[in-house]
């Protein structure tokens, strides 16, 4: 994995106070001092951003070379952590630097809400509709926020952790038979 290898700069950086960001992320780290850049356990680049500055951040990331929109999804950390319940996860790819960036945006509330990034990456359109449909996260500024996977009259958001899988009990006939 080329994108997981730490750059030589990181390895030699002695002072822990300096944010350990790769050079291609330096403009982002400079412009967004409150964003947390970290490496996942398997060595992938993750940035944690507040939802209020998501659109600006994504715009800056696009200017910094992350030209390709890859993915947008959400994770429901129901009863797994204190603090915001959901993470909106945005995946970006830079072909120029051959790097990936994953942006985690914590959102919370009964009707969780995050800003839509369709103005920056129009490809997020269907992805945000999917997250709206399955998680019930409201994307403000989305041009066409409707259900996409399920019928319109569906009740609830099935990928939330407090929604059951929806399995029906399997009825076996002739259960008295000895198998």
């Amino acid at each position: 994995m080329t994108d997981q290898m730490p750059t030589p700069d990181e390895e030699t950086a002695p002072e822990p106070a300096a944010p350990p960001v790769a050079p291609h992320l330096a403009p982002l780290a400079e412009a967004f001092p409150e964003a947390k850049f970290e490496q996942s356990a398997a060595g992938q680049q993750v940035a944690r951003v507040e939802s209020g500055r998501l659109v600006e951040f994504v715009q800056a990331a696009r200017d910094a070379g992350f030209e390709m929109f890859i993915d947008l999804t959400a994770v429901d950390h129901y009863r797994q952590r204190s603090g915001p319940r959901y993470d909106v996860v945005v995946g970006l790819l830079s072909l120029k630097h051959n790097q990936r960036l994953r942006i985690l945006v914590p959102v919370d509330g009964d009707v969780p809400s995050a800003p839509s990034i369709t103005d920056v990456y129009p490809g997020a359109n269907f992805y945000e509709r999917e997250v709206y449909d399955l998680f019930g996260i409201d994307f403000t500024g989305h041009p066409d926020l409707t259900r996409i996977m399920l019928p319109d009259d569906w009740d609830g958001h099935p990928l939330r952790k407090d929604t059951p899988v929806g399995a029906v009990p399997i009825q076996f006939r002739d259960t008295n038979k000895v198998l």
Partner: peptide
């Protein structure tokens, strides 16, 4: 029978 996908969908 729904196969291996016994779920909401």
């Amino acid at each position: 029978s729904g196969g291996m996908f016994n779920n909401y969908a």
